[in-house]
Amino acid sequence: MTIAIVDYGMGNLFSIYNALDYVGGSPKIINEPDELAGAEGIVVPGVGAFGQCMDRLCRFESALNSARECATPIFAICIGLQVLFEASEESPAARGLGWIKGRVVKLPSSVMIPQMGWNSLSIKRPVEMLQGIEEGDMFYFVHSYYGLPEDKSLIVATTEHGVAVTAAIAWDNIFATQFHPEKSGAKGLRILENFVRSIRC
């Protein structure tokens, strides 16, 4: 069960690799778009700023679009979630993948930015990827912006940081978290395990 971790050259993918390996997936870090073709699952990790991320991710864009159409399970993390949107306040000139209609906006100035630390989930809709996760379970967040989809039904979990912050999104074969499951202890591993299982099905 090869899970391709998209390496778009922003560094440390060690944690997500180790976490997927730990829960029984067979992760492989890939550097070339054509390597996505054989993958049974794809992880889009998030590092850096929105514009910087898209600059480096754009060469994978058509391969990711094909994987999406082929119903390959895709898991996007942190900035990986944000680039699924069309654009972000962080980098107004940059264009995202545009899979989700909506905007990526900055956290309110009344709270600590970036949000950094453990925050609890409020589950909006039960999905397979959140199996074993309960209301109030805590996950590790590090971010200054968050996604606001036009279609609110895409949001499966939120967290409270000044406002209700989109914490997880799911539709079709796509699942995305604003938090880092690979840094969120046993509960984070459980979500990654759910992902590995969804590939086996």
Partner: peptide
Amino acid sequence: IKKTSRSVFVP
């Protein structure tokens, strides 16, 4: 750190 991060999943 390499040894630790194989089985420790917090920052």
